[in-house]
Design a protein around this nucleic acid. Sequence first.
DNA 1: CCCATCATGGTTTTT
DNA 2: CCATGATGGG
Length: 645
Amino acid sequence: MKGQEFLRELNEEQRAAVLAPDGPILVLAAAGTGKTRTLVYRVVHLIRRGIAPDQILLLTFTNKAAREMLERAEAAAGAAVSGLWGGTFHHMANRILRRHAPLLGYPPEYTILDREDAESLMKRIVKSLEVDSLLFPKADVLLSLISEAANSGGPIEELIAGRFRDLSEATQMQIREAVFRYEKEKRALKAMDFDDLLVNGLRLFREHPEVEAYYQNRFRHVLVDEYQDTNFIQAEWVNRLAAAHRNLFVVGDDFQSIYGWRGADYRNILEFQKVHPETQVFKLETNYRSTPEILAVANACIAGNPRQFQKVLRSTRASRRPPLAARVRDGEAQARFIISQVRRLLGEGVRPDEIAVLYRAHFHALELQMRLMREGIPFVITSGPRFFEQAHLKDVLAVLRLMRNPGDAISFRRLIRQLPGVGQRTVDRLWERLGGMFSALQSSARRTLEGLLPRKAVEDWRRIASAWEAVERGETPIKALDVFVERFYRVYAETHFDDPERRLEDIQETQRYMAKYDSLDAFLSEVALMTNLEAEEESTRRQGAPCLRLSTVHQAKGLEWRVVLVPWVVEGMFPSARSLAENPLGHEEERRLFYVAITRARDELIFGVPELRQMRDGGIMFCKPSRFLEEIPKGLLQEVRLPYV
DNA sequence: CCCATCATGGTTTTT
DNA sequence: CCATGATGGG
């Protein structure tokens, strides 16, 4: 595209934001109003103005979003965008921390702990405290507490005192001890958990003004997508980054703030102008995505939330049929109904990948999944356990992680416990006798360990160790995994999993994926931070065939489909009972979540409203239609009741 | 001390 | 219904 021609692709609202002069800019972009396009063209505009791409930082909510934006910017601006920094807060913090980790007392090869790693670490700590297990919080509860403290920037002592006020003082003391040990152990492991990446990213700037000044100077323009979902640390971090040039361009929609439970605080967007008084504000309200009928429902839904920026979605599209609410008997009937709708749509020529089923929680889709499989309808799920958190992939990653970080006790335990005759106790003792580190790439260290192992473990141990020997001989890590699989893991997989072929294929897939990275550290960080959305995209890219999509509403953020079906729109499910119980403002966030689901739909929106729920104990529970449906004026929805079949 | 079996308890959302 | 945790035999 030449000259300013790209501006023709923008409407008045978007163009004003794209061309705005330097300074802090807040773009309030309602759903479907071309937020991504605005952000992309702002980047293009900056580059055309002569800003070097490596002076621009683009923070997005997922890496997928970053990649898409960069691809689009490249299409519009040519190869000129290369060098631009784009990705999630976690990624960018990691990228910066890898360079400066020693300033904070970490080696540059620090390991990133994913959720599972953190949980297993905490479990061991709780165990070592020898507490009365019935009255002591579970590891995941402790971790969520630590995370809450980190993300809100508040002191953890107060959180403990508040959340566990019913527990004895002695128990609270032990909780504080568990938290303390968790931090200490992470240090010993030379590892950071997800929150540490953000916390340390901020700490790096606070404690090292010369580093802060370097990045403040380097990034002349900072752009942030989905600003409504930033938390305390993230907001502080970007404020600091942009403090020198003051070119902070944030885009968001307070109506779509759905990560409050993770510390996101939409006051960041509401109060942006207070923090940056010279802010220019732009509103995008013209919706290009959905039919007027769908938007009417969206507007009616969000009207239930006061105290937010008032925005009304204006449609540009022609009318279609109104959204449909179908009352069905139960989950089974709902699954049959959804499948019949999918069949109808396919018959009308809708492509399967233009249809999505979006739900509040994974388990809402169980019945549907079974039925889809039984009926042979292909689908993809962007939910459930993350690709790289599956046991076999973590096993393989442990080989690599230990190679980079000799202090990684978690990987050590994982591998060594696979040896016959080695259980928890033995591995603990081994680790202690090794002095809390194991240099897998040194033959002397490997020999030392071999001498400490029980006799019957030695043969398998040598097989595992052959992977590291290969690296010592100068083989690549990818090749080393071949050795690991052929000498040890193939047999292990065949004897421990009921689907070894699939798992070995996953490993090959991982090796192919590794080939794209020029350093092992880069690969390992990427894998730790990769979401399902990104992993799944990787695998469908090869398989090709377009599929019906099943996803949580959270993971559907920023995406759109021609047809959206939402099951279980009943009280207790959507809104989720648990969310209402835990958070006094839970209903507002649930309503925003419902709004996000609605506004993903272009042409058709269909709700499933079962009348009863089969409980696990064999009983049944009657369901009330969701308050969010009741709030929508009659006439905006078409309601049907399906016969009991 | 390891490992398999049995019971129990608990189901939100994710970087 | 599934995963995790306790328990007891080897």
